[in-house]
Write a protein that binds this DNA or RNA. Structure first.
Length: 336
DNA sequence: GTCTGCTTGACGGGTGCACA
DNA sequence: TGTGCACCCGTCAAGCAGAC
């Protein structure tokens, strides 16, 4: 951690200075100079998990040599990324050297002072965000909502735990500014969504610097048995009109037939045969009520290669023959 | 005679259980 | 999670009954 701070990073800083002097290279954010306040002009606010995020400012700022920004504070979060040059920052009462590639955060009410180098200008990417906790009204609606909600919460609450020191932008959060600017320039379809992604990308890459390897929730993993049960039942529903065997379904989802039987027992409290029969008979009942197709055709359409077998199966479940069932429910079709 | 609906009996696959 | 074994039941072919 110490090697990441601006103060304790003098070795890599010297190395960096030598490298910059030898081969300064093109300024990667040069295109943003064309209209430095382009992103500031956007009315951009969005919901991320249970948080509302309003982008107040998002721009490239240039400071001539020796420029001083006196002690001040904000009510919002201000993210500072040194894109080029060097200078100094005082966070509360602690001075730190700044150079290209460093990042620091000034949270709400954190008093800070900044000055650029006496000889070199400094370019800084600035992001001002107003972050508010919204009513938790959308949790538990599925489709990954809870996962995103948790990730947003983890990322945004970590902002308040960030130490007030400059650190190396190890995960290239700065690229998010370039991406946002590119989106503004090109204005592609999905502008708002892409812009939101760029801002979220900046936040995630920034907070990642302080991630500890322990205690992470990890990537979302499936309950594989339940997932396989869903795959199997979906396959049966899709193919109930064809001859289906346990082995065939098992092969489709890459498990042994025996294991598939266990999954049906544990996840569906049923058996492969019962489930297949249930799906087929449901379809047959529907056809009996809503069509006037002969029973043989209906049986064939629902996977009974020998229509004669339908009779004992049907009678076993509904206690009447298909013909009687059709007569009993003849009114149902007209009701619809 | 033909078609549709239904029943019956033999066989093989699915299931439950135990074990590795 | 895979395998073996015994048993049950789903599947199929053959055939019967009734309606037209």
């Amino acid at each position: 951690m110490a090697e990441e701070t601006g103060k304790a990073d003098n070795g890599s800083k010297r190395q960096h200075d030598r490298k910059s002097a030898a081969n300064p290279g093109p300024f990667p954010y040069a295109r943003m100079v064309n209209k430095m306040d382009a992103l500031d002009r956007l009315e951009l606010q969005f919901r991320w998990g249970d948080y509302g995020i309003r982008v107040l400012r998002c721009h490239l700022a240039s400071f001539p040599p020796g420029q001083i920004i006196n002690f001040h504070k904000h009510s919002e979060y201000e993210f500072h990324y040194i894109a080029k040059g060097k200078g100094k920052v005082i966070l509360v009462d602690q001075p730190h050297d700044l150079h290209e590639g460093l990042f620091y955060l000034t949270g709400p009410d954190l008093i800070h002072y900044q000055e650029s180098d006496e000889e070199d200008p400094m370019h800084e990417l600035c992001l001002h965000l107003d972050i508010v906790l919204l009513a938790e009204q959308r949790t538990g609606t599925g489709w990954g909502d809870e996962l995103e909600t948790n990730e947003a919460k983890e990322c945004l609450t970590s902002l308040d735990r960030m130490p007030a020191i400059p650190v190396v932008d190890r995960f290239h959060a700065m690229n998010g500014f370039l991406e946002a600017y590119r989106i503004w320039e090109e204005q592609p379809a999905g502008f708002y969504t892409l812009m939101k992604q760029a801002i979220v990308q900046i936040l995630l890459r920034t907070t990642r610097v302080f991630d500890s390897p322990e205690g992470k929730p990890g990537i979302p993993e499936r309950d594989m048995n339940f997932h396989r049960y869903q795959l199997a039942t979906q396959y049966i529903q899709d193919n109930e009109s064809l001859p289906i065997s346990l082995e065939q379904v098992a092969e489709t989802i890459n498990i042994s037939p025996r294991q598939l039987q266990r999954i049906f027992r544990s996840e569906g409290q049923t058996t492969f045969r019962d489930y297949l029969e249930h799906v087929r008979l449901s379809g047959i009942c529907s056809d009996l009520i809503h069509t006037d197709k002969p029973i043989e055709e209906i049986a064939l359409n629902h996977g009974y290669a020998n229509p004669n077998y339908l009779y004992p199966v049907f009678k076993g479940k509904y206690e009447v023959t298909p013909t009687v069932y059709r007569k009993l429910h003849a009114g149902d079709a007209r009701v619809r």
